[in-house]
């Protein structure tokens, strides 16, 4: 059976099906794997969920870079636990994408052939220990703002994966903030190191929410289908508003001269993002883009003997069963 036929309503044509589908979405009912859904909805979600999964897994690289150099055994154990969680999040998301009929191999292949993207934030290097603090605090906070919103996305398996992931993320954010807080209570060198990390990560973190709503190509349709629940600009504003207080509490300066409270709007105003840098990073021109992909490909190739052994073992087991 063609997978597009799964869940097809009996005796309905395409237009009627789309109407029923949209009514279901409008009524805040989740779409589940065997329901009929427009082809474009399926394609959009496969793209979004798989790219989300790739981001979790690629994100293990910049943090993994400091596993052997964490300043104490405790910090090392914490970072190890966090990186392990990220791998798990990748798995939740790949599994959610697989419910739409795409295979793990196709998704990995799309990543390696650069047909699929991942969050541009992971194309930046982790130069100092405090970068690990900045990533946990800022990158994970930004991810949480986005993922809390996605808990209400219309596709059931994606929404449920988000609930599971959000539960684990708050530890990530807190351990990062704890690193920054500790450094900001330390020596002048430690304070300078923490501030330098925030100076480098602040703007790329704001880019994580994507282009302005006015420049966002897919936004309108994705909002109508409730794949997206809040706009890029709204989520970005929410993140900035909550982060200023956290930065002030530990004496970190956010590197934006235009950042100030706007009484009338009830939000912080902020400066313009360098979108040229965002585009460069998204299209493989980020400082570590080549490194990240090359490492993923290399590890994948080095693991080929394991997959091969599993295939041989499966075949042997099957032929033994048939012979018996």
């Amino acid at each position: 059976m063609d997978r597009r036929d799964i869940g097809r309503f009996v005796g309905m044509d395409q237009a009627e099906e789309e109407k029923v589908f949209q009514e279901r979405v409008d009524a805040e009912e989740k779409i589940e794997p065997k329901d009929w859904m427009p082809d474009k909805y399926r394609k959009t979600l496969i793209r979004q969920i798989s790219q989300h999964a790739h981001s979790e897994v690629i994100g293990m690289q910049p943090e993994g870079n400091w596993l052997t150099r964490a300043p104490t055994l405790h910090r090392k154990a914490v970072l190890l636990a966090k990186v392990q969680d990220e791998g798990g999040h990748g798995l939740y998301l790949y599994s959610a994408a697989e419910t739409m009929g795409v295979s793990r191999e196709e998704m990995i292949d799309d990543l390696h052939e650069e047909r699929a993207k991942y969050a541009s934030i992971f194309n930046y290097p982790t130069l100092t220990w405090s970068d690990i603090g900045a990533i946990g605090w800022l990158v994970d906070s930004a991810a949480i703002v986005n993922q809390i919103s996605l808990q209400r996305t219309s596709y059931g398996p994606y929404a449920r994966a988000m609930v599971r992931i959000c539960k684990e993320e708050s530890f990530h954010q807190r351990q990062g903030y704890n690193i920054m807080m500790t450094l900001m209570r330390g020596s002048d060198e430690q304070k300078a190191m923490a501030q330098d990390s925030v100076n480098r990560f602040w703007w790329p973190v704001l880019m994580m929410f994507g282009p302005h709503d006015s420049d966002s190509v897919h936004s309108a349709q994705n909002m109508k289908w409730k794949i997206k629940r809040q706009s890029n600009d709204d989520l970005r504003q929410k993140f900035i508003d909550q982060t200023v207080e956290q930065a002030n509490a530990i004496g970190i300066l956010l590197p934006d001269p235009d950042l100030k409270w706007n009484e009338e709007r009830g939000h912080y105003d902020f400066g313009e993002i360098d979108w040229e840098e965002f585009r460069r990073s998204m299209s493989g021109g980020g400082p570590c883009s080549r490194l990240r992909l090359a490492h993923h490909r290399q590890v994948h190739e080095e693991g080929e003997w394991v997959r091969e052994a599993m295939r041989v073992y499966e075949n042997k087991k099957r032929s033994n069963q048939e012979a018996a």
Binding site: A77, A81, Q173, R174, N178, Q242, E245, Q246, A249
Partner: peptide, 19 residues
Amino acid sequence: DKPYRHASHYDLPDEVKSL
């Protein structure tokens, strides 16, 4: 023996209301 896996393991400054 690994309480650091939980968010509640980390103390926050009093001024920070949400994190």
